[in-house]
C-alpha cells in the first residue's frame, strides 16, 4: 500500500516539475507571438531607414534609434570590456584570497543593483558635470551594468582552463604573463566572448538608465556629447503615447529589439556549445 502510494507521488511530482519547467517557456512564447502579431505589419524598409515623423503624420521609422542603440552599445563596450576582462584575469590568476573574494562579492551585488539606480549614478557623475544629457552618459551607465557580468564570466571561463595546460606552459619556461596571454586567454576565448555577448544582450534592452542620461532624440545625433536616441527609449515613448500609429511602431520596435537580443544570445550559446557542461 505505502509502496504504491510512494510510487504514485513520485509520478505526480515528476509530472509537476516537468510542467513547471514548461511554464518557464510559455511567457517567452506568448511575448514573441504577440510581438509578431502586433508589430510585423509595421515593419518595412522605412522603419529601418527613416527618421520618426512629427506627431500626427503616419509613416516614418526608427533609423536613428537603431543607430543610436548600436552607438551606445559600442560606447559601453569600449568603456566596460577592457576593465571587465582585465579584472577577470586578476580574479582568476591572483593568489591572494581576501581581495578577490571582496571584489567577487561586490561585483555580484552590483549585478543586482537596479539599472535605474545606475542611471542616477551616471546622471550625477556625467550629466551634472557636463551640464547636458549625452550619449557618453548613456554609455557610462550601460558600461557599469556590463562590468560585473563580463568580470565574473571572464574569471570563470579562465578557471575552466585545465591546470595541466598552465603547468605545461610553465614547465617550458614561459613567464607567467606569457602563460596567461598566450595559453590561458586563447583557450578561454570562446567563453569570454560568450560573457561579452550576454552582457551586450542585457544592456541592449535597458531603458531605465537611459531615461536621464542618453535622454533620447528625434533626429540624427551629431556628436557623442549630445542626447542620442535609443531603441528601448523610443519604444517606451511610443508605447505610452496616445497615437495608434505610434503604438504600431512601438510593437515593431520591440520586435526588432527582441530579435536582435535573441540573435546575440543564440550566437553566445553556439560559441560555447558544450563548454558549460565542463563547469559542473
Amino acid at each position: 500500500m505505502t509502496a504504491r502510494r510512494r510510487r504514485w507521488v513520485n509520478v505526480v511530482m515528476a509530472a509537476l516539475t516537468a510542467l513547471a519547467a514548461l511554464g518557464t517557456i510559455l511567457p517567452l512564447l506568448f511575448i514573441f507571438g504577440f510581438l509578431v502579431y502586433q508589430g510585423a505589419s509595421a515593419i518595412n524598409l522605412d522603419f529601418f531607414t527613416r527618421l520618426p515623423k512629427p506627431v500626427g503624420e503616419p509613416g516614418g521609422g526608427m533609423a536613428n534609434a537603431i543607430a543610436g542603440s548600436l552607438i551606445l552599445i559600442a560606447l559601453a563596450s569600449a568603456l566596460g570590456l577592457p576593465l571587465g576582462i582585465l579584472g577577470g584575469v586578476y580574479l582568476a590568476e591572483s593568489r591572494e584570497r581576501r581581495l578577490p573574494w571582496l571584489i567577487r562579492f561586490v561585483a555580484d551585488v552590483l549585478n543586482g543593483v537596479p539599472s535605474i539606480v545606475i542611471g542616477i549614478f551616471a546622471y550625477t557623475v556625467v550629466v551634472l558635470s557636463m551640464r547636458r544629457f549625452s550619449a557618453l552618459a548613456g554609455g557610462v551607465a550601460l558600461a557599469v551594468i556590463m562590468l560585473p557580468i563580463v568580470l565574473r564570466t571572464t574569471e570563470e571561463m579562465m578557471r575552466l582552463v585545465p591546470a595541466s595546460l598552465r603547468e605545461a606552459a610553465l614547465a617550458l619556461g614561459l613567464p607567467e604573463w606569457k602563460v596567461i596571454v598566450r595559453v590561458v586567454l586563447p583557450t578561454a576565448r570562446a567563453g569570454i566572448i560568450t560573457g561579452v555577448m550576454v552582457a551586450i544582450a542585457r544592456v541592449a534592452g535597458e531603458t531605465a538608465p537611459l531615461l536621464f542620461t542618453a535622454f533620447g532624440n528625434r533626429f540624427w545625433h551629431q556628436r557623442l556629447d549630445q542626447p542620442i536616441a535609443a531603441l528601448p527609449l523610443q519604444i517606451f515613448a511610443y508605447a505610452i503615447s496616445p497615437f495608434d500609429d505610434w503604438h504600431r511602431q512601438a510593437w515593431a520596435g520591440a520586435l526588432v529589439l527582441i530579435t536582435l537580443v535573441f540573435l546575440v544570445s543564440l550566437a553566445a550559446r553556439i560559441a560555447t556549445r558544450g563548454r558549460y557542461s565542463a563547469v559542473r
Binding site: W101, R104, F105, D108, V109, N111, G112, V113, P114, I116, V117, E155, E156, R159, V279
Partner: peptide, 24 residues
Amino acid sequence: LFAVTVAVNALARVLVWSVGGAVR
C-alpha cells in the same frame, strides 16, 4: 532603493555561496 537591493543581494550571495562556493 539601492540600500534595499544591496541588502537583499548581499544576503542572497552569502546563501548561494554557502552551497555552490563563490567560484562555481
